[in-house]
Amino acid sequence: NNDALSPAIRRLLAEHNLDASAIKGTGVGGRLTREDVEKWLAKA
């Protein structure tokens, strides 16, 4: 759900042209964290 994304995470996803639904969030309530996105980028 994009409503649950912080502005910083939205920007990070946009910079790398990523789809938030492709990344499993580990934050509160399954929210994406910066670490989630960075780990996903490291694997890609």
Rank of each mutant, 00 (worst) to 15 (best):
1 N>A: 12
1 N>P: 12
1 N>T: 12
1 N>W: 01
1 N>Q: 13
2 N>T: 13
2 N>H: 13
2 N>K: 11
2 N>W: 03
2 N>C: 06
2 N>P: 12
2 N>A: 12
3 D>H: 10
3 D>R: 10
3 D>L: 07
4 A>G: 14
4 A>Y: 15
4 A>M: 14
4 A>K: 12
4 A>R: 13
4 A>F: 15
5 L>E: 06
5 L>I: 13
6 S>D: 15
6 S>P: 13
7 P>W: 01
7 P>V: 12
7 P>L: 07
8 A>I: 11
8 A>E: 15
8 A>P: 05
8 A>S: 11
8 A>M: 08
8 A>K: 08
9 I>W: 06
9 I>H: 05
9 I>E: 04
9 I>N: 03
10 R>N: 06
10 R>E: 10
10 R>D: 06
10 R>K: 13
10 R>H: 06
11 R>W: 08
11 R>F: 06
11 R>M: 10
11 R>H: 13
11 R>L: 08
11 R>E: 11
11 R>P: 00
11 R>G: 07
12 L>W: 06
12 L>Y: 06
12 L>M: 10
12 L>Q: 05
12 L>K: 05
12 L>H: 08
13 L>E: 00
13 L>A: 04
13 L>S: 01
13 L>K: 00
13 L>F: 05
13 L>I: 07
14 A>Q: 12
14 A>T: 10
14 A>S: 11
14 A>R: 09
15 E>H: 08
15 E>D: 12
16 H>V: 02
16 H>K: 02
16 H>W: 04
16 H>Y: 08
17 N>D: 09
17 N>W: 07
17 N>A: 08
17 N>G: 15
17 N>E: 08
17 N>H: 12
17 N>Y: 08
18 L>G: 05
18 L>P: 02
18 L>D: 02
18 L>N: 03
19 D>W: 03
19 D>F: 04
20 A>D: 05
20 A>T: 07
20 A>R: 06
20 A>V: 13
21 S>M: 09
21 S>V: 08
21 S>Y: 05
21 S>Q: 10
21 S>G: 10
21 S>H: 09
21 S>L: 08
21 S>R: 11
22 A>E: 14
22 A>P: 05
22 A>N: 12
22 A>V: 13
23 I>S: 01
23 I>K: 01
23 I>H: 02
23 I>V: 07
23 I>T: 02
23 I>Y: 00
24 K>W: 05
24 K>M: 11
24 K>L: 11
24 K>I: 14
24 K>Q: 13
25 G>E: 02
25 G>N: 02
25 G>F: 01
25 G>T: 03
25 G>P: 06
26 T>E: 03
26 T>D: 03
26 T>A: 04
26 T>W: 02
26 T>M: 05
26 T>K: 03
27 G>Y: 01
27 G>D: 03
27 G>L: 03
28 V>M: 10
28 V>S: 10
28 V>H: 09
29 G>D: 13
29 G>W: 02
29 G>V: 03
30 G>Q: 04
30 G>F: 00
31 R>A: 14
31 R>E: 10
31 R>S: 12
31 R>H: 08
31 R>N: 09
32 L>A: 04
32 L>G: 00
32 L>T: 04
32 L>Q: 02
33 T>W: 00
33 T>V: 04
33 T>I: 04
33 T>Y: 00
33 T>F: 00
34 R>S: 10
34 R>M: 15
34 R>A: 12
34 R>T: 11
34 R>P: 11
34 R>G: 06
34 R>V: 15
34 R>N: 11
35 E>I: 07
35 E>T: 08
35 E>K: 09
35 E>N: 06
36 D>L: 01
36 D>Q: 02
36 D>R: 00
37 V>F: 06
37 V>R: 00
37 V>W: 05
37 V>T: 02
37 V>G: 01
37 V>M: 04
38 E>A: 06
38 E>V: 09
38 E>K: 09
38 E>M: 14
38 E>S: 04
38 E>F: 14
38 E>Y: 14
38 E>R: 07
39 K>M: 11
39 K>H: 13
39 K>N: 15
40 W>V: 15
40 W>Q: 15
40 W>K: 10
40 W>D: 07
40 W>T: 15
41 L>C: 04
41 L>V: 07
42 A>H: 10
42 A>Q: 14
42 A>F: 06
42 A>V: 10
42 A>L: 08
42 A>C: 07
42 A>Y: 07
43 K>A: 15
43 K>P: 05
43 K>I: 14
43 K>V: 13
43 K>Q: 14
44 A>T: 12
